[in-house]
Design a binder for these strands. Sequence first.
DNA 1: GTGGTCTAGACCACG
DNA 2: GTGGTCTAGACCACT
Lengths: 127, 127, 127, 127
Amino acid sequence: MLVLWFPIDYNSHVPVYKQIKEKIKEMIVKGHLKEGQFVPSIRVLAKDIGVNVNTVARAYRELATEGVIKPIKGEGYVVASLNTDEFFKEKLQTLREILSNLKEQGISKKEVETILKEVFGGDICDP
Amino acid sequence: MLVLWFPIDYNSHVPVYKQIKEKIKEMIVKGHLKEGQFVPSIRVLAKDIGVNVNTVARAYRELATEGVIKPIKGEGYVVASLNTDEFFKEKLQTLREILSNLKEQGISKKEVETILKEVFGGDICDP
Amino acid sequence: MLVLWFPIDYNSHVPVYKQIKEKIKEMIVKGHLKEGQFVPSIRVLAKDIGVNVNTVARAYRELATEGVIKPIKGEGYVVASLNTDEFFKEKLQTLREILSNLKEQGISKKEVETILKEVFGGDICDP
Amino acid sequence: MLVLWFPIDYNSHVPVYKQIKEKIKEMIVKGHLKEGQFVPSIRVLAKDIGVNVNTVARAYRELATEGVIKPIKGEGYVVASLNTDEFFKEKLQTLREILSNLKEQGISKKEVETILKEVFGGDICDP
DNA sequence: GTGGTCTAGACCACG
DNA sequence: GTGGTCTAGACCACT
């Protein structure tokens, strides 16, 4: 039985159902969820992450319309397919916008690099 | 007469009044608004950026409780003071979380560096 | 279901939302509202005391930023905690100022004592 | 030349013009302003206490309608008459309401007595 | 049903 | 003109 868990950020302005959608996609991209595999049932996931059933239901419903998961009547949802490239592209586009924003706010490249190094470790320039 | 303008992103999940708060803080940090200077009146800013008066009022009210601006009855709001360090710290903390998230999602350091270079220009490592 | 009611003084210069805030705090101090308990929903209280929904919403929002109550999305607000000592201290400080004022205006101690006796009953000095 | 000064409490919800009215009445009651005497001119008082001319003008206008002061064309306002008894009665009525309120909020007689003693000095019960 | 946000329009106190 | 407050009514996200 697959168990999924991830934290929900209630202070974020991103709706909970969207956070769930993103996390599911992430799991697929990272290979933790593979094509044909069942995702946790709505009720189980809802209970595990501590949100309302309707919220998970909405996330799954939208993922289904996007073709990421596929409903199997009476059984649940199975992972269908996910365009990984597009997923990454979107993420990087978001990053681009955030960095532009920070630059505009007067944050220097150096500061960003420090954080980058902090998070990803290692030197910025490997010889 | 000081004129302020900035776009509001209605597709964002961030409430309009918070977007306004952030922009005002940004202006102060960047020195476009200086201590003792009047910010645009609620009505004027509301009209300029195309939102309701109450929305700007709420933004200003919260900025006032945070001590960033100060209301002068019948005259308007003047810039009080803003802890620039804290402002930047928060921004960088947010960046840290975003990068951690991206790393977790499988985005490589190289990809982030590319975007960084794209946005900030120049080489990553100056000899 | 908890029912709350109190009158709003529209002749007072104190804004309605502040009157609501004070009443809620008072209820907590007096133990009529206990930690963890839900306060009436914004809509219900608004209807009960005959004010607009937004007015109650503002009162609750400010109480929340003060940490007195805590919002639970889709469920309501629960009582968090209230520094009773501080609440009383503020009240007594206000009283102190009022009495100073009265004294300055030439009201005698005797007169105040009479009122005090009237309101609180009993003798001033129990032998 | 009579000079008047008193502080305005901008944090109070009581409108400034009402604060001015009360202070003028107080001065009369306390004998600092006597019948027939000129009160400071609107402009002078406004400047002295740091408020707008219109605000003082409004206070004087209302005091005039109440018969407390009397306009002398081209010269200013002179003190007319003030029903001292009524003035005190109102003050004491206000005090009564405040004490009732405090009692309701759970403040004990003892605490009020302490403040009373603090402000007025001396013992509560003089033998 | 809940809270959160926003709009449109109003009145008051103050300058 | 300024900010401060309030109303009426709307849509959204969430339980």
